[in-house]
Write a protein that binds this DNA or RNA. Structure first.
Lengths: 193, 193, 193, 193
DNA sequence: GATGAATGAGTTTTCATTCAT
DNA sequence: AATGAATGAAAACTCATTCAT
């Protein structure tokens, strides 16, 4: 860990927690500083502004997701297994970082103008991975050509995300395996017998 | 329109706009009042608090969605067509009120503790409609029994919601028909050929 | 009871309660109206303003005290028994209307400029009764001439008032007789054996 | 004066003035800040709330009174002179800080529930000093045993307080010596010849 | 006479940001 | 590099008062 990280890391972790619990607006820099055990000024020294701290967080989070997804995808050699891997990794990510994902969904997907280009870049960056897979599947002939690629991609992201959040946040008990199998089953072959 | 509505309606409409544009926290009562063309005190006289105004909005919105969905469902006589109707109505609703739905998703589905019981009641109220249909389908034998009902319901809600928002908010051009058909196709028979 | 009183009385009683519980500033016209079971406008129709309602209350209260005191004083024929009567009546009054007296002490005696002439007239009106008795006592030769009349009067008012309030408001149990005897004993012959 | 005091002191002094002139409710944090020559936020940074600022003031004031009283009491060796000292110090205190005392009387003694425990602790703290002296006097045999201790204590506090305030606030001219002697004379040997 | 919906000036409080140390 | 006291703009909310009905 380099010198810069020594201060940045505790801030990062405290920020995730506070933003998750309170949402962007309700979270205060004071509380983040206190939980990180550093002075408020230090946050401004390192990140410049609350907004920028938040964006760094989101960026870092999505990067980790992207990295994990891309790594797993690279290890498979057909669209079907690549998509299965994507679902598994994304679900796992939502499970591991569900409070972060809550923020992601409500603050980044929920808004449009507020986070401007940066949020938009983050969003479309991840989506293009899915889109590329869908398109590849059409070319390979394993995915129905009549499906709209954009809709299919966001539908996949949405079904995993909302289902995951709903399970992880609102239900006390749930079977991770059941969720995963249900999602795969629906996405690949639909609900009908 | 009775007397009570004379002042309440303009507040309602202004509130929807402002909350949609800014989100709950960023929206100010001052702006809502100004846009409604009434004094700020009038909002407090009628709604008691900003939070309560927002909740009334959400409640009214979900009620309209529920009413529309239930009405269409009642007119069909099997699970497949009922679910098709639900998808159609929900997509239509997201199309008609997309800025309202953005708030809905980010403020009500995005948070847990913040809106407490009322938001929770609203959320689970709508979900139980979907769950009942899924369960009925399993009984009828047209839906795979191995699917987890809860996951299936939230997956459906999520795929429609996120796809709709993504299309309606971020894309300039989109085909409503394509989105609808894609969603139905995925949900009922999956993406695979 | 004449027509005017039919509306004024319930307002009066509700006002006493609310002002006593909350103090002048914290008391709201809304609450007074609600407790009186009439519309807010009616209070303004009858009293013109919150301040005026309050002042009417104080005036009426002091008038009752003055009347009771004067009546008892008139029935005695020497300063000693007149003063004893005054102490008894004032203590009784503070016991009967202790919440009203709390307001009296804190809002009228506690302030100077706020209630201006009217409060001042009320205050000095009651004080002059005591002063006259003290002076008469000096002339009669039963009261020490070296005592400052003004100081003696306010000291008497203060010892009764504060003692009464302290007993009636802060102590659960107290003996009315003990308080009365203690006050008389101190005022007439001091604490020393 | 340490660093903390550099900003706290001007706030303190401005607050005393404003609260004394207006009373707690009518006083505004805006005015206190303006008179202290600092920003409004600084008051909240240092005291947290208007209520807390007020309470700190009262606490500090009573502490000074208590300290002064205790110091003088300790220097005397019998109840009579101790009580004389108490009367002198309290009267002096009311003379020096009469505007502060006005607030003290109306906001702390006038209310019950509003300032809750803290105000109650302040009140009973001071009263127990007087009570202890009275009880000691009874034991010593110099004070009449038939007097109720509680009533005697509050009567003493009340006669000094109300007399002082009445003189210092409402009369243009008064003799400090006359007031002091009159109070002592009444309290120890009563008004009668 | 009585009402109560509407008002808007005025208050407390919060908090991101700055900057002297 | 790091700090944290100070700031001030902005926001939610209150409530005495008015006035059309």
């Amino acid at each position: 860990m380099d010198r810069e990280q020594r201060k940045r890391l505790p801030i990062f972790e405290a920020a995730i927690k506070v933003f998750s619990e309170k949402g962007f607006e309700k979270a205060t820099v004071d509380e983040i500083a206190e939980r990180a055990g550093i002075a408020k000024g230090t946050i401004y020294y390192n990140y410049g502004s609350k907004k920028n701290l938040f964006l760094s967080l989101i960026e870092e989070g999505i990067e980790r997701l992207e990295t994990a997804v891309k790594k797993e995808i690279a290890r498979r050699n057909n669209v079907r297994t690549k998509l299965e891997a994507l679902i598994t990794v994304q679900l796992q990510f939502f499970d591991d970082y569900n409070s972060f994902c809550k923020v992601l969904l409500s603050e980044v997907w929920g808004r449009d103008t507020r986070w401007e280009e940066k949020a938009e870049r983050i969003r479309s960056g991840y989506f293009s991975i899915i889109k590329d897979l869908i398109d590849a599947g059409k070319v390979e002939g394993v995915i129905k050509k009549e499906l709209d690629t954009g809709t299919t991609s966001s539908a996949l992201f949405g079904m995993i995300g909302i289902a995951a959040l709903d399970r992880f946040l609102f239900e006390k008990e749930y079977s991770y395996e059941d969720i995963l199998n249900t999602l795969k089953s629906i996405f690949f072959s639909g609900i009908e017998k």
